[in-house]
Design a protein around this nucleic acid. Structure first.
Length: 265
DNA sequence: ATGGTCGGTGTCCGA
């Protein structure tokens, strides 16, 4: 069977419920992983999303901040999520589909403005979170159907994952300490970066454009912060991966756009 | 070098 997975930092699932419907109708992902849902579980729009063709949902939200959710056309069982850095702050939700495939949806802390952990607690949190993800990736078993880890990682790891490598070296999301950690996380499980599996490293590609630009498309100062990674045993099952750039131009868009990957299982 | 915009909340914080 073919399985299409989407990851999207939707920046409020309630504000953008009609854009979620558009993603569901246009791209028909089997599984949609959301970040920054910004809603408590008892206020999650289950009814509307069920009617969009996603009867199976695992949500983990909190008031105002963070929040992750997995929406699926197919049944799954929930996997106990992690509380990284000892915080119960709705940054991880995970499920196992009936074919055994594990899907982990992660929202890595943004890290604030100053890339110095001594001065900026948010940056220290981000680095600590990445350290725990390195350990976690290394501990995962390598047998079984395989795993997918997706989400807003808030790190653009490669030179051409940002509009200007040189100008962003001291900007949170592309500093060497973050990039090294994300690459160590990737190496710890041999995760395959699905978009870069199909898009050459020298080609610029982004998944986020700031709200603050006068014209996001014209200035095109983006970063690739959102990722879909698969375990190495799935690399032969990978059929395509892409970033839905057009979604940044939708009315009342999120600043992030969906990432899509197709697997043949 | 600076400020620019969102969403959720509440008279600002986080992104």
């Amino acid at each position: 069977m073919s399985l299409r997975i989407a990851s999207w930092n939707i920046n409020s699932v309630r504000m953008r419920i009609e854009l979620l419907r558009r993603l569901a109708e246009d791209e028909a992902p089997d599984v949609i992983c959301l970040q920054e849902t910004k809603v408590e579980d008892d206020k999650f729009p289950h009814l509307e999303i069920g009617a969009m063709g996603y009867p199976h949902r695992e949500v983990r939200g909190m008031k105002a901040y963070n929040g992750v959710a997995i929406l699926s056309k197919h049944p799954f069982e929930a996997i106990e999520p992690e509380n990284w850095c000892g915080r119960n702050d709705s940054r991880h939700v995970a499920v196992r589909l009936s074919n055994g495939l594990e899907v982990h949806d992660i929202y890595i802390p943004s890290g604030g403005d100053t890339p110095d952990p001594a001065e900026n607690d948010k940056f220290a949190h981000k680095l600590g979170f990445l350290d725990e993800l390195i350990d976690w990736s290394g501990r995962l078993p390598t047998n079984g159907t395989g795993r997918v880890v997706v989400g807003d990682f808030n790190v653009a790891p490669l030179e051409h994952d940002v509009w200007s490598h040189k100008q962003l070296l001291k900007v949170v999301s592309h500093t060497p300490v973050e990039v090294e950690r994300l690459q160590r996380m990737q190496a710890a499980h041999d995760w395959v970066d699905t978009v870069r599996h199909f898009v050459p490293a020298e080609e610029k590609i982004y998944s986020w454009w700031s709200y603050r630009a006068r014209d996001w498309a014209k200035s095109d100062r983006g970063r690739r912060l959102d990722h879909i990674w698969v375990s190495p045993n799935l690399v032969d099952r990978l059929r395509s991966a892409s970033i839905l750039k057009a979604a940044r131009g939708w009315e009342k868009a999120s600043d992030h756009v969906p990432v899509l990957a197709d697997l043949d299982l």
